[in-house]
Design a protein around this nucleic acid. Structure first.
Lengths: 160, 160
DNA sequence: GTAAGTGCAAAGTCTTTGCACGTAT
DNA sequence: ATACGTGCAAAGACTTTGCACTTAC
């Protein structure tokens, strides 16, 4: 259940002029394989045993963001974080309970955008759409314990 | 060009159990009359001459947010900030150049949300939509200098 | 009159930066 | 071989908290 196209990732790094280091690969892998959103902190915690520094995680996320391999998510419940992204025009369904992220591409906002642009003489350049709610697993108690409960949500409970 | 319904604001405070103090009124007024998004920092700068503390601005914004009088905006260009909001289901057109915020209410996302909900068995509870671009004034150089160029954008250039 | 709000200063968080060492190309 | 990347520690930016004083209701 890996699903990461490393050749494509490698290519993306090359054309961006960045080196594909072990750390950057690990950060991306952790994000992509979890299928959830993470904060720099939770990613670092997950990669702790590999000796990866928090600073490195921040820097890796910055590079990955520039290469459009990860996306900033404003997950309201769990604070903000990052999630792996698959394309250039992507939106997310974010589970407020476990942080799971499901991407979708067709938002059908064209008509709305054209209407608003005309009405307000506003040149819309891009948009950000996020849907928040509860995923199937979290909505079904019996399925709820399917392993990795949100690292992210736990992580944000720093010192209550 | 005031347009603030103080009776409604007063009522909102009352039903929320908060006191409508001079400071809270000033913070809301500054936000609403500017029609732009601001950070706590820029708001405080604007209210500096009235002796309003940064801490107070933070606390006022928290209360105003709870009363749904202000909204958190993830304005990509200028960082994140707050903007006055008029209702309970609002979206924003944010000018990346001057921070101007234009609200709109009809997003027509119903069909999309139902489709995604069905497909992914996801219970969508709320959504966040923000459109970013360039407003008429900023797109028309001659009109560009219509007074208050973004306090916010300037503000974020803290120490370069 | 009393509970709630404010200002100030201090303490936390979260992020970024400088520098010497390590490593991918 | 060399420019780019990493780890560590320290600095910076942003936000929250404690406490005495003030104010709205």
């Amino acid at each position: 259940m890996t699903g990461i196209d490393w050749n494509q990732v490698r290519e993306r790094f090359k054309q961006g002029g960045y080196a594909l280091t072990a750390q950057r690969r690990l950060v991306y892998e952790a994000l992509a394989q979890s299928g959830r959103c993470h904060t720099p902190h939770t990613l670092q915690a997950e990669l702790e045993h590999l000796g990866i520094n928090l600073t490195t995680v921040y820097r890796a996320l910055e590079v990955l963001g520039e290469l459009e391999l990860v996306e900033h998510v404003h997950s309201t419940a769990a604070g903000h974080g990052y999630a792996a992204r698959s394309g250039s025009h992507v939106h997310q369904l974010v589970c407020q309970s476990c942080g799971r992220v499901i991407e979708f591409h067709h938002c059908d906002l064209g008509p709305l955008i054209r209407r608003l642009a005309r009405k307000h003489h506003f040149k819309v350049e891009h948009h950000h759409l996020e849907l928040h709610g509860v995923c199937e697993a979290c909505d079904t108690p019996q399925l709820g314990q399917e392993g990795h409960q949100s690292e992210m949500v736990r992580g944000s409970t720093t010192a209550t």
